[in-house]
């Protein structure tokens, strides 16, 4: 027969259960917020602004830290021209001021992951300070445990997502590696969308600056944008732009096909307009 538990022990167990549930709720809140943010980015696509992109990446790292109980986290992007990794996000007690800094490829955990596209977990980083010098500089101390996974966009490694020091000093395990991989996938998609948007933005800005010598065009463009954003035509055009953007990124064959199809449609429409004008005039 099972003996009855003392009241104190039962209360302690209940307190533990409440703490556990509270943590789960907090996890769920963060994950829910992340999901909503990603859905928002997916919906707006090329219409996002750069600050949104930075905030989203930070949120992804923050959520990964929270879910995997890590004390610090970083997200690096590969700069292929400079053969370096650039800190895009650095979170942790002593990580301030690191965003934008570079570390050369070919050293440390992040360099290894970028070079190979392979994830890695390290349980006793302090055994070799040189291996950890990149993140050591980042957080101002030598971490004990570390997990790093690649950001893969299609078949390219575009960056690295890295967590440091799991709570309780335990090593990151294989399940943690798989979980962080999911966050890395989301980050890669967000980065890809942002890059497309930045390219379009630069193009539009360059076109405007060439034309807009006295600034009046910018003012008119802003007023027009405010007006047209609400219109069905604008929404259709934005959707068309999204589709074209997607096709442009899908490879040569798809791009050529889309060019031919759209050229044919444009030609047909031009012909229709020409005939319409001829009919009116004749």
């Amino acid at each position: 027969m099972a003996s009855e538990q003392p009241a104190e022990q039962r209360i302690a167990e209940l307190e533990e259960e409440v703490a556990r549930l509270r943590t789960q709720l907090e996890d769920a809140r963060v994950v829910s917020e992340l999901r909503a943010r990603l859905a928002q980015v997916g919906a707006t696509g090329t219409l996002s602004v750069p600050t949104e992109h930075a905030a989203l990446l930070e949120l992804i790292v923050q959520a990964a830290m929270h879910v995997l109980r890590a004390q610090a986290g970083s997200l690096y992007l590969v700069d292929e021209d400079q053969q370096a990794l650039v800190w895009e996000v650095a979170l942790g007690e002593r990580a301030a001021g690191l965003v934008g800094q570079r570390i050369p490829l070919g050293q440390g955990v992040a360099g290894w992951v970028a070079a190979t596209g392979q994830a890695i977990a390290v349980a006793d980083v302090q055994q070799d300070p040189r291996w950890a010098q990149d993140v050591g500089r980042a957080v101002g101390y030598l971490p004990r445990t570390m997990l790093a996974v690649p950001l893969l966009l299609g078949d390219r490694v575009i960056g690295v997502l890295q967590l440091l020091d799991k709570d309780g000093g335990r090593p990151f395990d294989a399940a943690d590696m798989a979980t962080l991989g999911l966050f890395a996938n989301q980050a890669a998609v967000a980065i890809d969308q942002s890059r497309v948007m930045r390219s379009l933005s630069r193009l539009v800005r360059a076109a405007l600056s060439d034309l807009d010598e006295d600034g009046s065009l910018s003012a008119r463009a802003a007023a027009l944008a405010a007006h047209t954003e609400e219109s069905p035509e604008y929404r259709d055009t934005a959707r068309l732009a999204e589709l074209l953007s997607e096709i442009a990124r899908s490879g040569d064959a798809g791009r050529r096909l889309a060019l031919e199809v759209n050229a044919a449609i444009a030609g047909y429409l031009r012909e229709q307009r020409r005939r319409g004008r001829s009919g009116t005039g004749g």
């Binding site: 890695i120 977990a121 390290v122 349980a123 006793d124 980083v125 070799d128 294989a174």
Partner: peptide, 20 residues
């Protein structure tokens, strides 16, 4: 391949995880 202690740089050792 999980938490395996292996030789590393500079004559040291590390405990690592991965299919590698």
């Amino acid at each position: 391949g999980i938490n395996i202690r292996v030789a590393w740089l500079g004559g040291g050792y590390m405990t690592v995880t991965g299919n590698s």
